[in-house]
């Protein structure tokens, strides 16, 4: 019975994802293939890319840290992004939107987040301490420090500029250009290809550092590689959509509950599907129910929270 249930649950999420994607493309579109549907299609692609980034980075981050309540947000990537956007507004005002253009802002944000993570990893991993908790603690402290700078700047800008900043601090699919989608897709596909081969290693790493080494994993090498891949995914998704904060916690835990399997081979695809479903649900609601008077970011947390609570009750906490 449980087996049948889990098989149904596993396929349900894919059926739901496809059905929602089609609904999103065609609902009230008037079958306008010249403008509405291509626009929606590019947003759908953005949601798929974002979903893969968030699910993948959160699930593997939790494996590496051996902790189910963390997301890579704790490392301060998103804080760096927001500080950068605030600095742009402070220095150039709302003109920065036109001076820099969406594409260069996107690329610059990615480069900035990657160099931030590169220096943090380099500093901490080559320190010889090689302690994941120390890495997390440093990430958390940096997040707080950087966010304080951002707040400081936010008090200095005008209300109009502040509302532009607020737009950056919420996840949204409103503005995604073709160039950004291409770059993101290329990065995500590269990460998936690199990471896919080490799923069995990741399964072993979830037993903990000592078991992993004892079973012949080159622990340092594998952990560093995956932290680097996570940094790329977070940089891409944050530049593309904006910060998603703790959506990854929901996605990862729901993936474990639905997949009912500890293997990354099973959990990761389920997680990606869940994240895409959540994004489409939220975006549908924004477009058709709330008429753009709320944001995807707010709805995502609402949908995730409710769904997660239902899952907890139904599985009686064995998630």
């Amino acid at each position: 019975m449980r087996l049948i249930g889990s098989a149904v649950a596993k396929y349900m999420i894919w059926v739901a994802a496809i059905a929602l994607a089609l609904t999103f493309l065609f609902l009230h579109s008037g079958l306008d293939f010249d403008y509405i549907i291509p626009k929606r299609f590019s947003r759908l692609i953005a949601m798929i890319i974002g979903g893969v980034c968030i699910a993948w980075s959160a699930i593997i981050f939790q494996t590496l840290t051996g902790n189910r309540i963390l997301t890579p947000a704790i490392m301060g990537y998103e804080a760096v992004y927001l500080l950068f956007q605030s600095l742009l507004i402070l220095l150039m005002g709302t003109k920065s939107l036109t001076v820099l253009g969406e594409n260069s802002n996107f690329v610059l944000s990615i480069i900035l987040m990657l160099s931030y993570s590169w220096s943090v990893h380099r500093w901490l991993f080559f320190d010889g301490r090689n302690n994941v908790y120390f890495l997390l603690l440093t990430g958390l402290v940096l997040t707080v420090v950087i966010s304080t700078f951002t707040q400081f700047i936010q008090f200095r800008v005008s209300p109009g500029e502040f509302s532009v900043l607020l737009g950056y601090s919420q996840a949204s699919f409103a503005t995604v250009g073709a160039v950004q989608l291409l770059i993101s897709a290329a990065a995500v596909i590269m990460v998936c290809l690199l990471g896919y081969r080490s799923f069995p290693e990741l399964d072993v790493i979830s037993l903990g550092r000592e078991h992993a080494i004892s079973l012949g994993i080159d622990y340092q090498h594998t952990v560093r590689l995956h932290f680097a891949l996570i940094a790329i995914l977070v940089a891409v998704s944050t530049s593309l959509l904006g910060p998603t904060a703790f959506m990854g916690v929901f996605v990862a835990n729901m993936a474990y509950a639905l997949a009912r399997n500890y293997r990354h081979r099973a959990v990761l695809p389920t997680g990606c599907a869940i994240a895409v479903v959540i994004f489409i649900l939220a975006q549908l609601a924004v477009e058709h129910i709330f008429n753009y008077r709320t944001t995807v970011g707010i709805l995502v947390n609402l949908v995730c929270g409710v769904w997660f609570l239902i899952l907890m009750v139904r599985t009686r906490g064995t998630v």
Binding site: Q62, G66, N67, S206, L207, G208, E210
Partner: peptide, 9 residues
């Protein structure tokens, strides 16, 4: 080593 706890079921 002494059986450690982990999150896997």
């Amino acid at each position: 080593r002494q059986a450690p706890g982990f999150n896997l079921r």
